Amino acid sequence: NQASVVANQLIPINTALTLVAMRSEVVTPVGIPAEDIPRLVSMQVNRAVPLGTTLMPDMVKGYA
């Protein structure tokens, strides 16, 4: 099972992602792969992401 990126805190809309804001977890459905965490740092989310939410490619500006 592949680990996905999960919000480690509430991430407000247009907030730049940080290492502290993300964690890796095996979840269903699978979201952005955990190995992409370094690439996600400083990218912005295009919606509010609640704690525990799996990050999907369409939630991160410039990711997809």
Rank of each mutant, 00 (worst) to 15 (best):
K61Y: 13
A21W: 06
L55M: 07
V45A: 05
L17E: 03
M43C: 08
I13L: 12
V49R: 02
M43E: 02
P29Q: 05
I11S: 00
P50T: 10
P29S: 04
L55G: 03
A64I: 13
Q9K: 13
M43F: 09
P57S: 08
Q2E: 12
G62T: 06
L40H: 00
V60P: 02
I13A: 14
N46S: 12
N8R: 08
L51I: 14
V5P: 00
Y63I: 03
T18E: 07
S24T: 10
A7D: 00
L10N: 15
P50M: 13
A34V: 07
M59S: 01
G62P: 03
L10P: 14
P38Y: 13
K61Q: 11
T28Y: 12
T15E: 09
S24C: 08
V27H: 01
V49K: 02
G31W: 01
T53C: 11
A16G: 08
M56N: 04
N46C: 10
G52W: 03
V49Q: 02
E25V: 08
L51G: 12
V60Q: 01
P33Y: 07
N8M: 06
Q44S: 14
R39S: 09
V5L: 02
L55I: 14
A64M: 13
V20N: 14
L10D: 15
V26W: 13
V60T: 03
R23N: 06
L51C: 12
P12V: 06
G52M: 04
M22R: 00
E25Q: 10
Y63D: 02
P38Q: 11
R39P: 00
R39C: 13
K61L: 10
L17T: 00
T54R: 00
V30N: 11
Q44T: 15
A21L: 15
N14Q: 06
N46A: 13
Q9I: 12
V26K: 08
L17R: 00
T54K: 02
I37D: 03
R39Q: 09
P38R: 09
A16K: 13
V5E: 02
A64E: 10
T15W: 13
L40V: 04
V60I: 13
N8S: 12
V26D: 08
N46P: 02
V27P: 00
V45H: 02
V26G: 03
P50S: 10
P33M: 06
M56A: 05
R23A: 06
R47Y: 07
P57G: 07
E35T: 14
V6N: 03
T53H: 12
V27S: 04
P50A: 11
E25L: 10
K61R: 15
M22W: 00
R39D: 06
D58K: 07
R23S: 06
V26M: 11
S4Y: 04
I13V: 14
N46L: 15
K61E: 11
L51R: 15
Y63W: 13
A21C: 11
N1K: 10
V5G: 02
G52P: 01
P57H: 07
Q9N: 08
M43N: 03
T18S: 11
N14H: 13
S24P: 12
L19I: 08
V45I: 05
T15S: 14
G52T: 00
G62H: 08
R23T: 07
S24E: 09
V6I: 11
K61H: 12
I13S: 13
M59E: 02
V30C: 14
L40Q: 00
Q44N: 09
V30Q: 12
N8V: 07
V5C: 06
R47S: 06
R39G: 07
E35Q: 11
P29V: 05
I11L: 09
I13E: 15
T53E: 11
I11V: 07
P29R: 04
D36G: 04
A21I: 08
Q9F: 15
D36A: 12
V5T: 05
A48R: 15
N46W: 08
D58N: 11
S4N: 00
S4Q: 01
T15N: 07
V20C: 12
A7H: 01
S42T: 14
T53I: 09
L55F: 07
I13Q: 12
P33Q: 05
I37A: 05
M22P: 01
A34I: 06
V60M: 04
A3W: 11
L51A: 15
M43V: 04
T15G: 09
I11D: 01
G62V: 04
T54M: 02
T18G: 05
I32M: 03
K61M: 13
P50H: 09
R23K: 10
N14D: 13
V27Q: 02
Q44Y: 15
T15R: 08
L17H: 01
L55K: 01
A64T: 15
G52A: 04
L19W: 14
G31A: 04
L51H: 10
P57K: 07
M22I: 08
E25N: 07
G62S: 08
G31H: 01
L10C: 15
T54C: 05
P50E: 12
I13C: 12
L10K: 10
I32R: 02
A48N: 14
I32P: 01
R47E: 08
P50Q: 09
I32L: 04
M59F: 10
V60H: 03
P33S: 08
T54H: 02
I11M: 05
P38V: 10
P57V: 06
V49D: 04
V30Y: 14
T28V: 13
V20T: 15
V30P: 14
L19K: 07
L19G: 04
G62C: 11
V45W: 00
M56S: 06
Y63M: 04
S24A: 15
